[in-house]
Simulated scan of single mutants.
Amino acid sequence: MITRAPHSLPPGKEADLHKLVQLTWINLAFRVSIVIVLFLVMGSSQAMRAAWLEDILTLLPPVAFLVSMHYRDRGPGADYPYGHQRVTIVAFLCSSVVLTLLGVFLIIDSSIHLLKAEHTTIGAIELFGHTVWMGWLMVAGLMYSVIPPLIIGRIQEKWAERVHEKTVHVDAKVSKADWMTGLAGVVGVLGVGMGLWWMDAAAALVIGLDVARDGFKNLAEATGDVLDRRPKSMVTGKASGMEEKLEAELAKLPWVKRAGVRLREEGHVLCGEAFVVPHSEANLTRHLWEAGQLLQEKDWRVLEVVVTSVDSLEEGGRKYYGHSP
């Protein structure tokens, strides 16, 4: 048996990844503090409980990323000859499933409370010798739960794009959009304070819908990665066009008549196959090896492309969508 060659990032990308790991640790510390703060001021509010449960689940993506980083650095071996690059996909998929299930639970739970017309009450506490309505503490906690993730999420998104870390990138986008969850919670709490009991459960329902939407979106993205969907741009969400770029490079070689490439994402790297129709079989073995090396040098994300000689591109196992020189 032969194993895949070990992979390492270029020095510049390695430095970017190190900064991203540091940001993730900072993000995780803030999120743990948010979970603690919301727990302390949660009371009996349905909206606060929903926001608290969501913030608990927001711990999963950074934890999954940090754990996957530990395993991803392990090189290929006898049991895993292709390496451990896909461990980030597994982590992404698991966190997406949990997020989706929680969203569905919150939707059902808050809907039941609305239908039963259960009235939420928010009391007061003694704080430094003064009677303070708990709702104000809830609002302060909710505002704290929004601001740090919003700021860190913007920074993380930039660094995640540089090293193509999808788990962190999607988590950063969710963090940036989570201001709606905090706002819904604030509205629910203030609504209870004004005597509108139903606003608390309604806010919890809005939060549940937001969680479920994020979960389904992430689940669709993770499923696409597991099913070896063609690489997509993290910025635009459209096909990256890397296959066409590599096909054009192969088409420039004087011994290549036609060429076709198919790629898949394995975590942050790209792997796949290239099928070439040669003009002749002279020095073909050497040409195929050199072509594989050429493709790997064209982009830092290209880990491995196996170049195979065929009589026609249809023999490469797919309909041909590329071009010929």
Rank of each mutant, 00 (worst) to 15 (best):
L17P: 06
A29L: 11
R31F: 00
A29W: 07
L28N: 07
P10H: 03
L28F: 14
T24K: 08
V35I: 07
S33K: 09
E14V: 03
N27K: 09
R31C: 11
D16L: 09
S33P: 14
V35S: 09
R4M: 11
H18E: 13
R31S: 13
R4W: 00
P6N: 06
W25C: 06
D16C: 07
P6H: 03
M42F: 03
P10T: 04
K19N: 13
F39I: 05
P6M: 01
P6L: 02
A29C: 12
H7T: 10
V37W: 10
D16Y: 10
L40H: 03
L28C: 03
N27V: 00
N27F: 09
H18P: 01
A5M: 08
G12K: 05
H18W: 10
A5W: 02
T24M: 11
R4K: 09
A29H: 09
L38E: 00
M42I: 08
T24I: 00
P6A: 08
Q22A: 15
K19W: 12
V37E: 08
L38C: 01
V32Q: 01
L23C: 05
V35A: 15
W25N: 05
N27C: 10
H18Q: 14
L23N: 09
L23S: 02
S8E: 12
V35W: 02
V32C: 13
L38H: 02
R31L: 08
I36R: 03
Q22F: 12
K19I: 11
L17F: 14
L23D: 03
N27A: 13
M42L: 12
L38Q: 04
I26P: 09
L17C: 05
V41A: 02
H7G: 08
N27M: 05
L28D: 04
L38F: 03
L40D: 01
P6K: 04
G12I: 02
P11N: 08
L40N: 01
P10E: 02
H18R: 15
F30E: 02
I26M: 11
T24C: 04
A29K: 08
R4F: 06
H7W: 15
H7M: 06
V32K: 02
L9A: 01
F30L: 08
F30Y: 14
R4T: 10
L9H: 02
S8I: 03
I36L: 14
V41E: 06
R31T: 11
T24R: 06
Q22D: 13
M42Q: 15
K13E: 12
W25D: 05
V21F: 09
S33C: 14
P11Q: 08
W25P: 06
A5P: 09
V21E: 14
I36D: 00
V21Y: 10
F39T: 13
A5F: 04
I26S: 12
H18L: 15
F30D: 02
I34W: 00
P11M: 02
L28E: 07
S8N: 04
I34V: 14
A15E: 12
N27Y: 07
I34K: 06
A15T: 13
P10Q: 00
